[in-house]
C-alpha cells in the first residue's frame, strides 16, 4: 500500500474543493432544517443558481468577479422568495416537494438547448470566468509540498479562501442562532402555532431563514465552480442535495460545526475507501471478480451508505448531536 498516496488523496479530499463547497452548502441546509425545521430537498438548486448567476454574468456581461458573485447571491434570494411565498404558509412537507421540484426545474432549464446560448446547454462552459479569482493569488507560483501532499499555488489559494469562507459563514450562523432571532427559528422548528400565539411573525422568520440558507447554498455553488473553473448542469443533480443531507446527519443536525465535520469526514471516507480499494485491486488483494476497477467508485458510495445506516441505528443524533434531544417525540 502506498501510504503517501493515501495521505495525499485524503488531504485533498478532506480539505479540498469538494469538502469546502459541501460544508458551506450543508451549513445553509442546517439553517433550513436544523434550526427552522424547513425540509429543503432542493439545496442543489440554490447552488446551481449561485454558480450560473455568477458564471453567466461574468462570461456574457463582463462584470468583475465579485459583482458576478453578488449577482449569483441575488438570484438565490429571488429563488428563495419564489419558493417561499407560495409554500411557507403550508405544512412543511409541501416545501419539501416544492424545493425538490424547483431544483430539478433549475437544472433542466439551464441544461436545455433553448438557453444554450447563455448557459452552454448540457455541457455548460468552462474557462476564464474564474480567472480573476486566481489572478488575485498573492502566493508565488509553483508547487508547495507538505510531506507527501503537493499543492499548486492556485489550489492553495483556493483552499485558503475557501476555509476562511467556511469559518466566516459558520461564525455568522453561530451568532445568528444564539440570538433571540435564532430562538424564534428554533421555536418554529418545534411548533409554529405556539410561536405564532406569542406574537411572532412566523412567515417572515421562515422566509428569512430560507433566504439565508439559500444564499449560503449559492456561495457554496460559487465556490464549487470557482474551484472547478467550469460549470455543468449535471453537477447540480438531486444526488448532490442528498449528499448534503447525508453529511449534515453525519455531523449532527442543529450544531454549527456539524455540517463542517460531516463534510470533512464524508470526503475522507470516500477518499480512503477509494485509495484502499484501488491499491488493493492493483496489488491483486481485491479480486477483480468481486470488485472490478470500474465499480470502485460505486462501492465507496455503498460503504458510505452502510456507514450512515449504522450511524442512524447506533448514533441517530450524528457525531456532535445531543442524544437527549431525540428523546422527545417532536411532531
Amino acid at each position: 500500500m502506498d501510504w503517501n498516496l493515501l495521505v495525499a488523496n485524503a488531504f485533498h479530499a478532506a480539505l479540498g474543493l469538494n469538502a469546502i463547497a459541501y460544508a458551506i452548502a450543508a451549513i445553509g441546509l442546517n439553517v433550513h432544517f436544523g434550526y427552522t425545521g424547513l425540509l429543503n430537498f432542493g439545496q442543489a438548486g440554490f447552488l446551481a443558481v449561485g454558480a450560473y448567476g455568477t458564471a453567466i454574468s461574468i462570461v456574457h456581461f463582463n462584470v468583475p468577479y465579485l459583482v458576478g458573485a453578488l449577482i449569483g447571491v441575488a438570484v438565490a434570494v429571488l429563488l428563495a422568495l419564489l419558493l417561499g411565498i407560495p409554500t411557507l404558509r403550508l405544512r412543511a412537507d409541501y416545501l419539501a416537494v416544492a424545493t425538490i421540484a424547483a431544483a430539478e426545474i433549475v437544472r433542466l432549464v439551464i441544461g436545455s438547448t433553448v438557453y444554450a446560448r447563455w448557459t452552454g446547454g448540457s455541457s455548460g462552459f468552462s474557462g476564464a470566468f474564474a480567472r480573476t479569482f486566481y489572478n488575485w493569488n498573492p502566493l508565488p507560483a509553483g508547487t508547495y509540498s507538505l510531506g507527501p501532499v503537493r499543492l499548486t499555488a492556485d489550489r492553495a489559494w483556493f483552499m485558503l479562501i475557501g476555509w476562511s469562507l467556511v469559518i466566516i459563514i459558520a461564525l455568522l450562523v453561530w451568532l445568528l442562532v444564539r440570538s433571540p432571532w435564532g430562538r424564534v427559528l428554533k421555536g418554529i422548528r418545534e411548533d409554529e402555532d405556539a410561536v405564532r400565539s406569542l406574537g411572532k411573525n412566523v412567515f417572515a422568520r421562515k422566509m428569512q431563514a430560507l433566504i439565508i440558507g439559500g444564499v449560503i447554498g449559492a456561495v457554496a455553488g460559487i465556490a464549487l465552480v470557482t474551484g472547478e473553473q467550469s460549470v455543468n448542469p449535471q453537477t447540480f443533480n438531486t444526488q448532490l442535495t442528498f449528499f448534503f443531507w447525508t453529511l449534515l446527519l453525519l455531523g449532527g443536525v442543529a450544531r454549527v460545526i456539524g455540517p463542517v465535520l460531516g463534510a470533512v469526514l464524508l470526503w475522507l471516507v470516500f477518499s480512503v475507501t477509494e485509495t484502499v480499494l484501488r491499491s488493493g485491486a492493483s496489488a491483486g488483494w481485491v479480486p477483480d471478480t468481486l470488485v472490478s476497477e470500474s465499480q470502485i467508485g460505486l462501492v465507496r458510495v455503498a460503504l458510505v451508505g452502510l456507514g450512515l445506516m449504522l450511524l442512524m441505528i447506533f448514533r441517530p443524533q450524528g457525531i456532535l448531536g445531543d442524544r437527549r434531544e431525540l428523546a422527545f417525540n417532536v411532531r
Partner: peptide, 19 residues
C-alpha cells in the same frame, strides 16, 4: 428559552440586530 421566547418587542429578533 421557552420563557424568553414569550417576551414581545425583542430587539434581537431582527435578523440584522441579531448579529
Amino acid at each position: 428559552e421557552n420563557m424568553r421566547l414569550g417576551a414581545t418587542g425583542q430587539r434581537g429578533e431582527s435578523v440584522w440586530r441579531a448579529l
